[in-house]
Amino acid sequence: MVDLSVNLAGIKLKNPTILASGILGLDVATLKRIVNGGAGAVTIKSLTSEPRKGHNNPIFIEAAEGAFMNAVGYANKGIDHGIEEFKKWDEKMPLIGSIVAADAKEFAVLAEKIQETPIEALEIVLSCPHTPGYGLLAGQGSPKATFEITKAVRKKTKLPLSVKLSPSIEAIGEVAKAAESAGADIVNMGNTLGPGMRIDINRASPTLAFKIGGMSGPAIKPITIRSVFDLYKAVKIPIIATGGIMTGEDVIEAVMAGATAVGIGTGIYYRGLTVFKKVCREVEDWLKKNKFKDLRSLKGIVHQ
């Protein structure tokens, strides 16, 4: 028997696969299906102070072979509705909260509020590439803003705190260090890549309604692996590798680069809701074949 369990900043996960934020995380009924799909933890879709309609359609397109692009624009029913919904969480599986806000002050308010739900960790997202007033478009990806926001949230919660970063920032190590020094327990590497754009030449129009969007899918995996590799050198806190993780071999690769766990999103499109089970079985098979007794011992081995 190989051991896939991981300790993510004090939270015990039975396996390293986590449903990434923004994927099917609007309600408890749907998240329960991800539990059955074999995830180690699930993340809710990010909540904002007020309900948001998000961008018009198209919000999600196939951008190229193995690449998707989205600009959802944080469509959600707001924190109050989210609290009512996620209070109903009665699964043993860790639920990870996710919030986005315009500034440190608003982040702090949301961080305090969301603790009315049974979340076991909190993720703050400072890296959305396609929503005015949030993430990259609000300058939250800089080391300074990251420090300020993380610190403000840290004061409001004792829960393990994850900061979701952007793969599109060059000096990502500096941003991660800022998060770590402000008290973050985990860095999630990361959000969608870009923004990018596609134009439909038959209509002479950008395809996404918001024109630009963040890229996901297997094509962005090399960026994720390199970013995780960089972060492993920069910080001591655990790293979640998100972006292009589709298979068990992708998980092994991310862990070798330095990840403790992985986020899966677009993988659901390719492999269904049981992608988590499938990935874990593949990790297990690989570990057995290569005579490793657990996943943990592979962490960061390329750095040795």
Partner: peptide, 19 residues
């Protein structure tokens, strides 16, 4: 109400946990 429409990813159309 469909947003991603066919990809089964965004969760907007879910009804009793069905995509």
């Amino acid at each position: 109400f469909f947003k991603c429409g066919g990809f089964g990813i965004c969760g907007e159309c879910c009804f009793n946990g069905l995509i």
